[in-house]
Computed example of a mutant assay.
Amino acid sequence: MATRWGDRDARRRDILAAGRELITRQGYSALQMRDVARGAGISPGTVYTYYPTKEALFAALYADRTDRFADTLEAALNTCSDLEELLVSIADDYVELYRIFGKNLDVVEVMSSPLRKDPEVGGRLVQSTGRAIALLRAAVEAHVPPEVNSDQAAALMWATMNGLAEQFTSSRRVMHANSLEDLVRFAARTLIGGLASTNKHAGSRTFLAEPTHM
Rank of each mutant, 00 (worst) to 15 (best):
R38L: 10
R34V: 10
G130N: 06
M161C: 03
E166V: 04
M33A: 14
N78P: 06
S81N: 12
E84T: 13
A142G: 01
G194A: 14
F69D: 04
F58S: 01
G19E: 04
P146M: 02
V144E: 01
T160S: 12
R99Q: 15
G102Y: 05
D106G: 04
A75S: 15
Y98C: 00
N162A: 01
D118W: 03
A154W: 09
A2C: 09
R11L: 13
N199Y: 08
Q26R: 11
Y28M: 14
R189V: 08
R13L: 10
S112H: 02
Y62F: 12
G45C: 08
T190Y: 14
D151C: 05
L61E: 05
R124W: 05
A134R: 10
A142S: 13
R12V: 12
P44M: 04
D92C: 09
R38D: 14
A10V: 05
E181M: 03
R172V: 05
A134C: 06
L195W: 13
Q167S: 13
D67M: 09
Y48P: 03
Y28S: 10
A132V: 12
P211M: 10
P44Q: 03
M33L: 15
M161R: 05
A188Y: 01
T129F: 09
R185S: 06
G6M: 12
D67I: 05
R131T: 07
E166N: 03
L125G: 09
R205E: 08
A139Q: 08
A40C: 01
L136T: 00
G6S: 11
Y50L: 13
G194I: 12
H176L: 09
V107F: 06
A134Y: 07
H143Q: 11
R12I: 10
E84R: 14
G45P: 08
L86S: 07
P114W: 03
D182Y: 09
H213Q: 15
A165R: 14
F207D: 07
N178R: 07
A196R: 14
F101N: 06
Q32H: 14
W158M: 06
Y98D: 07
I90F: 09
A132P: 02
V95G: 11
E109T: 00
M157C: 10
L57V: 02
L195Q: 03
T46E: 14
W158H: 14
G163K: 11
R173A: 12
S204V: 13
L77N: 02
R131M: 00
L77P: 10
I192T: 13
G19N: 10
G41L: 11
A132F: 15
P119K: 03
T53E: 03
D64S: 09
R124M: 06
I192F: 04
V144C: 00
T66A: 05
Q32P: 04
R20C: 11
Y50T: 02
V184K: 01
V110K: 13
A139F: 10
